[in-house]
Nucleic acid binder design. Structure first.
Lengths: 159, 159
DNA sequence: TTGCTCCTCACGTCACGTGAGGTGGC
DNA sequence: TTGCTCCTCACGTCACGTGAGGTGGC
């Protein structure tokens, strides 16, 4: 952990960064088995390999893995649902790359509309989950209050 | 769905209510297989049976099943972690029942202290999860804003 | 050259899903 | 008595965990 400010990686850096599976697994907080499993399911696209067979990962791969982990642990989605979201992400990146190419405007609109719909649906689901958590929090606070009452009634020391 | 106000069940009602597995499963929103699995793991205590072998559930059972489902779907806990919380719940209920009995004050204090500790830990975990969800929500809003920008730049209609 | 990390099977586990084949209860 | 629900195996699935046995790379 350096105290110097982390240098912002340029696009060239992002593409040239080459991490081994153990490094990305630790950065993302999953096991190497998990990283290989996601590749097997096709969630990571094409993963680079050295001549000897060792996998090499880029900064983009790390970002995707972090996104999978978030969608899984925070929202509880299964890998099929996550695949849909990742696919939309990728199509949007593609669209962004075609910015100069001036591709079919009709197709661009389709992709953008779909991405916005997925984003909006996700937002609703996250908001609903937040509401559930708030209810949970209120229950816990009510319970804590009751515990304190009982302790006071019985003269128990639970400071 | 009746429009009349639901009568509050008395303690006697709660104990005498007898539901079959399909009814409780539907009320809680899980499968009958899941209800049997939780019983097999010992999360439900002793479940009643008719002479023919059919399981009978009380209102208390429905409450426990709902709690399991919440702890699982909202917080993402596994069944071993949930077992710890349910056990604490049960010890607290026991303590409440011993109110008149005037049991060992030292033991009561132990139980109450443990329940409060579990409650406090749970509260911290729920609050942390809420913070994660808030971060997620901000990301989604930023993304939606970018989509709208891109659409405006390119003159796409994504109303 | 020595370790540490990587590789590919392949079986195990958790939390159920999903029939198969048979009995129970309003 | 007729259905619909319940019962118990038991195999399947998803998302990995966990060795076994062997090779790779600074």
């Amino acid at each position: 952990v350096s105290s110097a400010p982390a240098p912002q990686p340029t696009d060239a850096d992002r593409a040239s960064i080459r991490l081994r599976i153990g490094e990305v697994a630790e950065q993302v907080g999953v096991s190497t088995r998990t990283v290989r499993y996601y590749e097997q399911l096709g969630l990571l696209g094409d993963v680079g390999r050295s001549a000897g067979g060792t996998r090499w990962y880029t900064a983009d791969d790390v970002e995707v893995l972090g996104r999978i982990r978030d969608l899984q642990s925070v929202m509880g989605f299964d890998l099929d649902q996550i695949r849909v979201i990742l696919d939309a992400d990728r199509r949007i990146d593609e669209l962004r790359a075609q910015w100069v190419g001036g591709a079919d405007a009709r197709r661009q609109q389709e992709i953008l509309t779909e991405a916005m719909a997925i984003n909006a649906r996700l937002r609703r689901e996250v908001a609903a989950k937040r509401a559930q958590l708030d209810g949970f929090l209120r229950d816990l606070d009510a319970k804590a209050a009751r515990y304190h009452e009982v302790a006071a009634e019985r003269g128990l020391d639970v400071s």
